[in-house]
């Protein structure tokens, strides 16, 4: 599903964020990327999303090299990859409008938009907050809205960059549980996180990074190596 081969990313020609990294994530896997700040987790998420390009090496999504994608292919790729961030990145519009926006870009019919919103909003449990603006929601609710937006196109991959970074433990656990449900519905999930509790409780594959390289890749792993 996702394959990185000898991927290196250097910022400003001086700082190596990712160094000759090789990684394979299979279809429907749930993977935690862990490691200290500056380990390269966010860069890895951005590379998969093709928000940035590697300086060397290649990234394949479904065996297709993303480096050579033109603008339309990138746009198509992003419709198949849902993404959420620590800072939610919601438009300053109601939850409904945030979710509708993604669908409208694709020229979906009003009826389909409504059906899709109903489907995802019940999954994240925000049925009563559709008319709310992001500033009227709690951190956990904002992340749920962001998550609903990320999955509205039924993507094959869901990327999450520190999704619980701004949330209390209960809200964090709720978000991770929803992501687990999404994973069970045949979506590959990659989560970059510092949240030790969540990683240890989930017992999923853990890829530990440091200084742009993978130190540990463990099935049913934990935050720290025992």
């Amino acid at each position: 599903m996702i394959r990185l081969r000898n991927v290196t990313k250097i910022y400003n020609k001086t700082y190596t964020a990712i160094h000759r990294l090789n990684l394979h994530i299979s279809k429907d896997e749930f993977v935690f990327l862990v490691g200290p700040t500056g380990a390269g987790k966010t860069t890895l998420i951005k590379l998969i999303l093709r928000d940035i390009l590697p300086d060397s090496g290649n990234i394949y999504i479904d065996k297709v090299k993303t480096r050579e994608f033109n603008e339309k292919q990138v746009s198509k790729l992003r419709k198949n990859i849902g993404v959420i961030f620590q800072d939610f990145k919601l438009l300053n519009r109601t939850v409904y409008e945030n979710l509708a926006f993604v669908q409208k870009i694709q020229g979906e019919k009003k009826k389909t938009i409504k059906e899709n919103i109903d489907r995802v909003i019940s999954l994240v449990g925000l049925e009563n907050k559709l008319g709310f603006y992001p500033y009227q929601l709690s951190g956990g609710e904002r992340q749920k809205a962001s998550l609903a937006r990320a999955i509205i196109n039924s993507p094959h991959i869901l990327l999450a960059d520190e999704p619980t970074g701004n949330l209390d433990p209960d809200a964090s656990w709720e978000i991770i549980q929803i992501m687990s449900k999404i994973n069970m519905a045949n979506t590959t999930v990659v989560v970059a996180t510092h949240d030790k509790t969540v990683v240890d409780l989930m017992r999923k594959r853990v890829v530990a990074m440091h200084g742009g390289v993978i130190l540990r890749d463990q099935q049913l792993g934990s935050y720290h190596e025992f």
């Binding site: 999303l49 928000d51 603008e71 339309k72 746009s75 198509k76 992003r78 419709k79 993404v83 990145k89 919601l90 438009l91 926006f101 993604v102 870009i105 694709q106 937006r149 196109n153």
Partner: peptide, 10 residues
């Protein structure tokens, strides 16, 4: 930036 992230073309 958000528009681009959710798949809007230039």
């Amino acid at each position: 930036e958000i528009m681009k992230l959710v798949g809007a073309t230039n």
